[in-house]
Simulated scan of single mutants.
Amino acid sequence: MFKRKLTALEYGKDYNPQDENQFRRMVVWLEDMKIRLYPIDERQQLRDTDNPQWEQAFSKYLQDLKCPYNEETIKDHVAVSDWLLGAAIRFEYGDNVEKYKLITSNDQQQKTNSSDQNENPLEKIDFASAEFKSGMLQLCELLQIPTKFNDTTAILRAVSKVITTKLSKEAIDKSQIKEQGTGVDFSIEQMSLGFDSGDKIINEAAKVLRLLYIQDLRTLQTKINETIVNVQSLVADPRTDSKLGKIGY
């Protein structure tokens, strides 16, 4: 039950307050190392833990420390140990105030920095402020998003959708590939249909259908090529199982 206080005082031994010998040794250690109420030459009676008069010396020691004890509590080693350990910690702090102030300051700074890092910056935004609405309108104008409705949430979703679909890295890469692969512009009227229906409108509709069919064929061919590449990469890197004495799947 005294683990935290013992650790703070750097007491490197096990401690059982119900053990009389351990209790007396603890009292002597606290006085010698932490409390230091008496001058060294006046600690002899307290150090002599085998002396039959030790309890009288200990009672006087508590009185000099101004411990709020009586004839009953002095026999309660748990309560007395708790008070003595607390007193030792107070003396230890008093001897090293600047040291522990520095530690406390550093710990507080680390907690503050950690808290700042974990905070979500969006939580600090006042979505109802005039400044936010003005910035949102400018962003919508830049992205060519209509702002005729007053639903802020809907506008933010629209902004997010446009940025994701048009301004993300993948969307930009696809756009560049598309631009690089663009052929020479031509008029649909210059395209040869291969037959003449006798009606100009029907001919143009047939050209459009033909172009759509060609596009579907190209998409299918691309998927076929991708499948072939995947199969080839799979076959070119077979797994070898020496236990089965075979190579492959």
Rank of each mutant, 00 (worst) to 15 (best):
K246T: 10
W54C: 04
A79Q: 09
A236D: 15
Y11E: 00
D50S: 10
Y38W: 05
K34F: 10
L139V: 12
D185M: 04
A87C: 02
Q221L: 06
T104M: 11
I155W: 01
D48Q: 10
E42Q: 13
I214G: 04
N118V: 10
N51C: 00
K200A: 15
F132K: 00
K178F: 01
S192Y: 12
E10C: 09
D64R: 11
N16Q: 04
K223M: 09
I125V: 14
L234V: 11
N21Q: 11
M26S: 03
C140T: 04
E141D: 12
D19E: 12
L156K: 11
L193Y: 05
K133M: 06
T112S: 14
I145D: 02
Y100L: 07
L84A: 01
D237M: 08
I89P: 01
D151M: 00
L85C: 00
Q190W: 08
K246V: 05
L30I: 08
E55C: 07
R43S: 05
T73Q: 05
K111L: 15
L139Q: 02
T104R: 15
Q215T: 03
F91H: 11
Q144Y: 04
S134K: 10
Q232G: 05
N106D: 08
N21H: 14
N203I: 03
V162T: 15
T222F: 14
F132W: 09
T182K: 15
P146F: 07
G183Y: 09
K133R: 05
Q215N: 09
Y38K: 14
I172P: 03
L212P: 00
Q176E: 11
T222R: 15
G86I: 05
D64C: 02
Y61G: 02
Y11K: 00
K60Y: 08
K148I: 08
G194Y: 06
L211W: 00
M33R: 14
L6M: 13
K166M: 01
S59N: 02
I74T: 02
L143M: 07
K60M: 07
S105N: 13
R43M: 13
R47C: 00
I228M: 12
A206K: 11
L143D: 04
K13C: 02
D14Q: 08
K161M: 05
Y93L: 11
D95W: 15
I214Q: 12
A128Y: 06
T222Y: 12
T164N: 10
G248V: 03
V28C: 10
R90T: 09
K75W: 02
E179I: 00
A8K: 13
A154W: 04
T112R: 14
F91K: 14
P146D: 13
E71W: 00
M1H: 07
D151L: 08
Q18P: 04
S197Y: 05
P238T: 06
V159T: 02
E119H: 10
I163C: 09
N96D: 11
N120C: 06
A158R: 15
E179W: 06
L142M: 14
G183S: 10
K161G: 01
G194H: 04
E204K: 13
E123T: 07
K3M: 07
E226R: 13
Y61L: 06
I224N: 06
N120T: 04
D107M: 12
V231T: 12
Q221K: 10
R25I: 04
D241S: 13
D41E: 09
V231D: 09
I125M: 00
T182V: 03
G194A: 08
A205R: 08
Y100W: 15
E131C: 06
L6V: 00
P39V: 08
M136H: 01
K200Y: 11
V184T: 13
Y100I: 07
K99E: 01
D185N: 08
